[in-house]
Amino acid sequence: MTDVLIRPAHAFDAAFCVPLIQATIGRIGHALAGTTDDVAAARTMLGFYPLRGNRLSFEHQLIAQAPSGEPLGVILAYPGDHAEALDDPFRERLRALGLPGHVESEGTSGELYVDTLAVTETARGRGIGGRLLDAAATRAAALGLDRVGLLVEDGNPAARLYVRQNFRPAGRRHLAGGVYRYLVRDLT
């Protein structure tokens, strides 16, 4: 789909992005929010979304938008070097709730880490995910980073997209009770 606009997210995009992000990350969202419920996790994310300096902030997101203005997808990506600091607000929140303040940071040094890629169900299969991944690669290069990294759960159909986008396997990671393949796309 060539007429899709890729634009930076704004705080007002929360109502579109947060439910889509939570539907995509599931148990990772639960771990960040300290809950086992999607609605409670999304409610917590809504509080963090308009704030800067955390992994779920609008400042780390790009939106794919139709010419009509309808949002079609979102990519949430940040430099891996910043992952620990971006997770600190979630650690603080968990401790304030009386829970262990353990949050597993996902990004790796030297990469732009794709935390979440999500496209609406009605827009899937139209090349929007690929456009968002290309935009992330452009952002990574502009930041002087030489790769884009992400995690994908076994059986996730998005894995086919990542192969088409030149991602290669680089190991496995355990996160929030799940096992994920770590994939990277080299930019050099």
Rank of each mutant, 00 (worst) to 15 (best):
L97I: 01
L99E: 01
P100S: 12
P100I: 07
G101C: 02
G101H: 02
H102V: 15
H102W: 06
V103M: 04
V103F: 07
E104L: 12
G107F: 08
G107D: 07
T108C: 06
T108Y: 14
E111M: 00
L112C: 11
Y113S: 06
Y113F: 15
Y113W: 12
V114L: 10
V114K: 05
A118R: 13
A118C: 15
T120Q: 02
T120A: 11
E121G: 08
E121W: 02
T122N: 12
A123W: 03
G125L: 01
G127M: 01
I128C: 08
G129W: 04
G129H: 02
G129E: 02
G130C: 13
G130T: 08
R131D: 13
L133C: 06
L133D: 04
L133K: 10
L133N: 05
D134H: 10
A135E: 10
A137S: 15
A137I: 08
A137Y: 13
A137T: 09
A137D: 13
A140P: 05
A140S: 01
A142P: 12
L143G: 13
G144D: 09
L145A: 11
L145E: 11
D146W: 11
D146V: 12
R147E: 01
R147I: 03
R147T: 06
V148W: 07
V148A: 04
G149K: 09
G149V: 14
G149S: 15
L150R: 00
L151A: 14
L151F: 14
L151S: 14
L151H: 14
N156R: 00
N156K: 00
R160I: 05
Y162E: 01
Y162T: 05
Y162P: 00
V163M: 14
Q165R: 02
Q165N: 01
Q165P: 00
Q165T: 00
N166P: 00
R168F: 05
A170V: 07
G171E: 13
R172C: 04
R172I: 01
